[in-house]
């Protein structure tokens, strides 16, 4: 099936099988391997991408569902100049990254939150990343990082 959509600000035009998952389109066809597969059942959040402003598990979504949508993956976050997104800076500064496998999904969930709620409180952060499992950090530094990135949103 043919579909067109916007990914990380660029137009994508591609033919995919009807039963292909969005995750496989992103990773295998488009080569954007920053999005990870951790469970294939929507239980770990490692494959989180943003579709029309909402954080979704790309392992549970058919690729064809992306048709006409605006999609963001972790690769679309930092600028071409290499400048990191405030969330990425905050994750590094707070030590919210250990193995880094959950990090792209975690950051995408956090970004979807900050885009609609620039200065979230702790409860709102918890809610937003409750579907993203991290086994390394114990989460406290992740919550701090998202808070920090939110505090930077002065004009939010």
């Amino acid at each position: 099936m043919h579909l067109e959509f916007i990914c990380n600000g660029k137009k994508v035009s591609v033919d995919v099988p009807a039963d292909m998952r969005a995750l496989d389109l992103i990773r295998d066809v488009m080569g954007l391997t920053g999005t990870k597969e951790g469970c294939a059942r929507g239980e770990c959040g490692a494959c989180t991408i943003i579709v029309n402003g909402k954080a979704v598990n790309s392992c549970l979504m058919y690729a064809v569902k992306l048709k006409g949508k605006e999609v963001f993956t972790i690769e679309g976050l930092s600028e071409e100049s290499g400048k990191l997104h405030p969330l990425q800076e905050a994750f590094l500064e707070e030590g919210a990254v250990q193995c880094g496998f959950c990090t792209p999904g975690m950051i995408m969930s956090a970004k979807a939150l900050l885009d609609r709620n620039p200065r979230p409180n702790e409860e709102e952060i918890e809610e937003a990343i409750s579907g993203n499992i991290c086994r390394c950090t114990g989460y406290a530094k992740i919550v701090k990082a998202v808070t920090r990135a939110g505090l930077g949103n002065n004009h939010g």
Binding site: L32, G34, L77, Q88, L92, G100, T103, P104
Partner: peptide
């Protein structure tokens, strides 16, 4: 090695 991890590279 943090930058590689937060950018998905």
């Amino acid at each position: 090695d943090g930058v590689e991890l937060v950018t998905g590279r």
